[in-house]
């Protein structure tokens, strides 16, 4: 009822004779039908949302992932800044104050926020320097592994045929050996230190990302845009670099985020059994190992590095899950 009334009113309102003032000189002939504007018609009014912006929007909706990201940023800032501004150095010993509790204030007025260890070294400084070392190792290892793995996997998947066959047989053989055993062997023959730890891990750790990349490349290879680029005469390197790799990126970013916690774990494990970062340089594994020796009496010496290790691994895991949901909505469960 009310709808038809409104329609009638609108009809009435558009009668030109009633709308125009009586003394107006305009008549219906003064108006012409312009027709659609060819240029304006194709104009996109709203800004187009790129894939990455779309993914960012989905990621922002995921509260847990955002919280993890914020936590990791704060953690990285602490790890970068605290060792620079701390009044102590990593190996500075205060033998008169061993195993002090948290928030201990020395006579000179400086506060040991996390207390000291058995040699009187400031644990606040050592914990954040250790976090920095562990993160540095984990990130470099993962990035190097990813680079090697992507190149290897992309080549195998791109060329296919017997090249792929040989490359994959090689992977089949070495994937059977648990990487931790090889890392243990390798870190024994090299002078112990951060660099050799990274090298040892990088020699064996690329296999997973190589297989992942190969699988993705194999499925991408048969898609039309690759065939088109090939038909237009792109070189293999151009095809891989500017068509295949960008399409792999989302999978690889997720893989990278989820590989970091396992790299942190490996570093901590190796340092724990005495093959990792050499003392007195702290790493999360070293600190946890020292903490276990005295945790019956000074539990905070184990709990602090344990909390940092666990929260860091947790955050990277949750962020990785969030990124996977954001970057590939098809996988969302």
């Amino acid at each position: 009822m009310s709808m038809s009334k409104a329609k009638n009113a609108a009809k009435a309102a558009f009668e030109p004779e009633k709308l125009l003032p009586i003394d107006c000189d305009l008549s219906a002939e003064d108006f012409a039908h312009v027709g659609p504007d060819a240029e304006r018609r194709d104009e996109i009014v709203r800004p187009s949302i790129s894939y990455w912006r779309d993914a960012m929007r989905r990621l922002k909706e995921n509260k847990v992932a955002v919280a993890c990201m914020i936590f990791l940023v704060v953690l990285i800032l602490f790890a970068l800044i605290v060792p620079l501004v701390s009044p102590y150095t990593m190996s500075e010993q205060h033998l008169q104050h061993p195993n002090e509790p948290m928030f201990f204030r020395a006579e000179d007025g400086h506060m040991h926020i996390f207390g000291t260890d058995d040699l009187g070294r400031d644990l606040f400084m050592r914990l954040w320097l250790g976090t920095r070392t562990s993160l540095y190792i984990a990130v470099s290892v993962v990035v190097i592994n990813l680079l090697i793995g992507v190149i290897y996997g992309a080549l195998a998947g791109y060329f296919g045929g017997w090249i792929d066959n040989i490359m994959m047989r090689f992977i089949e053989i070495i994937i059977g050996i648990p990487y931790l055993i090889i890392v243990i062997l390798l870190s024994m023959i090299m002078k112990s230190g951060v660099t050799s730890l990274i090298i040892a891990y990088a020699i064996v750790g690329w296999v997973g990302s190589a297989r992942l990349t190969r699988g993705q490349v194999l499925s991408l290879r048969t898609q039309e845009f690759i065939i088109a680029a090939h038909a237009l005469g792109s070189s293999p390197w151009r095809l891989i670099g500017s068509h295949i790799v960008p399409n792999l990126l989302s999978v690889l970013i997720v893989n990278l985020t989820l590989a970091i916690p396992s790299a942190i774990f490996t570093e901590a494990f190796l340092s724990y059994i005495g093959l990792g970062v050499p003392l007195p340089h702290p790493s999360l594994g070293n600190l946890a190992q020292e903490g276990t020796l005295r945790f019956m009496f000074y539990p905070q010496q184990l709990l602090l590095p344990a909390i940092v290790i666990s929260l860091t691994m947790l955050s990277f895991n949750m962020l990785g899950d969030g990124l996977r949901d954001a970057l590939d909505p098809r996988l969302r469960t």
Binding site: Y272, A288, F295, P299, L302, S310, L314
Partner: peptide
């Protein structure tokens, strides 16, 4: 997220 060596020490404690 908790490595087994930390878990072991925590359980002991």
């Amino acid at each position: 997220s908790i490595p087994s060596f930390i878990m072991g020490a925590l359980l002991q404690y």
